[in-house]
Simulated scan of single mutants.
Amino acid sequence: MKEKALNSPGFEIDPDLVITLDHGDPLMFEPFWKEVGHNATVTISGWEKMSYYACDTDDICWFLEPDFANEVLRLHRIVNNAATNGCHIIPGVGSTQLIHATLHALASIEARHPVNVVSAAPYYSMYSDINSMKSALYHWAGDAATFKGDDNFIEIVCSPNNPDGMIRHAVLSNNAGKRVHDMAYYWPHYTPMRGPADHDIMLFTLSKATGHAGTRIGWALIKDTDVAREMVNYITLNTNGVSRDSQVRAARILKVISDGYEFPNSNGAGQFFHIGRHLLADRWRRLRQAMEVLGKFSLPRFSTEFCEFFKEQAQTYPGFAWLRSEDESINDCGDFFKRINVLIRSGRLFGAGPNYVRINLMGSDAYFDGFIKRITSFG
């Protein structure tokens, strides 16, 4: 199946096709960017961006494209979701590389090794894969809520949380250890804006902010210069910098979103976060209706809060649905959905039990529509 077809009007999933809702592929935003058209198109001549270096080699981050940095700061200023004053901007190959670069940097500064890495369950499933890196500096130590160690730890705080969409705060004592705040979903289409987050280390990613997962760009806002230098050293050794071409494209994408708010109607497609919130609200409405018909699972409930970006009371619409089985006959949610040819991620991978499952709500229209039809028909 061609990727283009998945968001084509009237396209329907073959009843026998396996619908994959395991990964957080954000194809739901594709129609918006098609509407934007050439306004988001980037042309790079063959002679451009040939050097490894994007800026003066005396700068801490020698591979940071100035235009990308400027557009990151501009969007954060418009949305007001992160305090950026005095922060170093470090680009990475998505948030995945940035997480490893941050852990490497913090652990390198620590005197005792290995450093314990923890996060409160349910936690993002990738965190528990840290041990596969076989680092002598740090290792995964599980659920922060049950951690019994001393101050030799790094706590990853994902807020809003993947997989359940809840706002999170550090679980362990604020006077010990170090913290990394994964802010991938702190954008107004997912959750009400509660003012600028102001942490020492904040990680963001283009994939969840705009839907451009394939561009493989994320960025970190780092207050401590020593931590920023160590992160740059890690990325230099790991990939010898970050693609300048990807940063140029990311800068243009961010510019389109910011222009849509500072210069309304400039991109021809409308205001991205407003449209994104409408799309997610509709999917959550349809999902809740389908689950009521099925009668076997429960979904999280979120309180309505004042959103400082939209200037009104707003609901939370996470990019993932965190389902819990309420049927005693269903011991493994993953197996249940496999029977109707739907692949989703088991709660086991998030530090929860098999009676939980995470479903991607950001996929193509065809996949989401096909999923809803199967659930409704099953019920």
Rank of each mutant, 00 (worst) to 15 (best):
L75N: 00
N80I: 03
Q97A: 10
V117N: 04
G94H: 04
T96S: 14
S51R: 12
V115G: 04
A54W: 05
H104G: 00
I44Y: 07
S51P: 07
D67L: 05
V118A: 00
A83M: 11
A121Y: 07
N85W: 11
N80G: 09
I90R: 11
T84I: 15
L73T: 11
Y53I: 04
E65N: 11
S45P: 10
G92Q: 10
N116V: 03
M126E: 04
L98M: 06
A54R: 12
L98I: 10
N70Q: 15
T96P: 06
N116P: 00
Y52V: 05
R74N: 14
M50R: 14
R74E: 10
K134E: 11
A111D: 14
L64T: 10
L73V: 09
A107H: 04
R74A: 10
M133Q: 08
L103C: 08
V72Q: 04
E48W: 11
M126C: 03
A111R: 11
P91Q: 06
P122H: 09
H113P: 00
P122V: 06
S51D: 15
Q97W: 03
T102N: 09
R74K: 12
A107N: 02
S119Q: 00
I130D: 04
M126I: 10
D67F: 02
I109T: 02
A82T: 06
Y123N: 06
C61N: 08
N80Y: 07
S45D: 14
W47R: 08
T57R: 15
I89Q: 07
D56N: 15
E71M: 06
C61H: 06
Y124N: 07
A120N: 00
I109C: 02
S119W: 01
A54I: 02
A120M: 02
T43C: 08
N80K: 12
T96G: 13
V115Q: 00
S125R: 13
I109W: 01
A107E: 04
P122N: 12
K49A: 12
F68N: 07
H113G: 01
T84H: 11
A107K: 03
C55F: 05
M133G: 01
I78L: 09
I44S: 03
S45H: 15
N70R: 15
A69H: 09
I109H: 01
I60R: 12
Y127A: 01
G86R: 06
N85A: 14
T96E: 14
I99L: 13
I99G: 01
V117R: 05
S132G: 03
L103W: 01
V79I: 15
H100I: 14
